[in-house]
């Protein structure tokens, strides 16, 4: 029920936002001639808009998981599993990774190629280390007898961490392509292609910050229940 109220509030907020900000109250039959697009999004890059839309989808996906998780954890047969200490290390790795992406982004803004190279590589490496750490956490839990299907708490833990890792892997694919072209050198590229790389570095950092934030929320949820 509270979820429904939340969505009600969200819906009302969206409607108001549309009405106020999106200038949906103009009378289009009165205005003639080419007028500038008034919505502030048309000037942005398609990739950036697309990424934010995608983050919306991912938010919806994980919010639903978290709602179900909280709902299900209230049932009597819920047996919380111990929190492997390695998760703290993993969290630190992901924070550092996200930081590295931010540094790469700053370097790209100031056209410092070496900074981009170094930080981009470090960010990816830290992420790979994070995923490896997560796999290690699964192995520790399995070794301790907390199997996937034994209790819903276990299933949720494996499922949510795996889904999060899958999203990181998707990001790593873009990261790998970007890093490769940065290391190959930018001499042979034209202006648009360099702009494209800059954009990708920037979007990678956005995506990593988002996944870090998501992980922090998930981690909080996993250790508190």
């Amino acid at each position: 029920m509270s979820v429904a109220m939340l969505f009600a509030a969200l819906g009302v907020a969206i409607v108001l936002w549309f009405l106020m900000v999106r200038r949906l109250r103009t009378k289009p039959w009165i205005e003639k001639g080419t007028i500038d697009l008034d919505d502030g999004i048309a000037g942005l890059d398609a990739e950036r808009v697309g990424l934010w839309m995608f983050l919306g989808v991912v938010t919806s996906l994980f919010s639903l998981f978290m709602i179900i998780y909280m709902e299900r954890s209230g049932f009597p047969d819920w047996r919380p599993l111990p929190d492997p200490q390695i998760l703290w290390i993993n969290t630190a790795l992901l924070i550092l990774g996200s930081l590295a992406f931010q540094l790469a982004r700053n370097a790209a803004r100031h056209d410092r190629l070496s900074g981009v190279k170094l930080n981009l590589t470090a960010g990816g490496a830290l992420t790979i280390a994070f995923i490896a750490g997560q796999v290690l956490a699964w192995r520790q839990l399995t070794a301790a007898g907390y199997f996937l299907a034994a209790n819903p708490a276990n299933t949720f833990f494996y499922l949510i961490t795996a889904l999060h890792a899958v999203h990181l892997l998707g990001g790593l694919w873009v990261w790998a392509r970007t890093t490769l072209s940065v290391w190959r050198g930018l001499e042979s590229l034209d202006v648009t292609e360099i702009a494209g790389i800059r954009l990708r570095v920037q979007l990678c950092s956005v995506y990593w910050h988002f996944l870090l934030l998501l992980w922090l929320v998930l981690f909080y949820l996993l250790i508190t229940t």
Partner: peptide, 24 residues
């Protein structure tokens, strides 16, 4: 659907031609 949908939304938001405001 997600791959297609991201395309549709982004195209509408971002790739309209000159003069095509939302209310047009």
């Amino acid at each position: 659907f997600t791959m297609g949908g991201l395309n549709y939304v982004t195209t509408v938001l971002q790739a309209r031609c000159k003069g095509m405001t939302l209310m047009r």
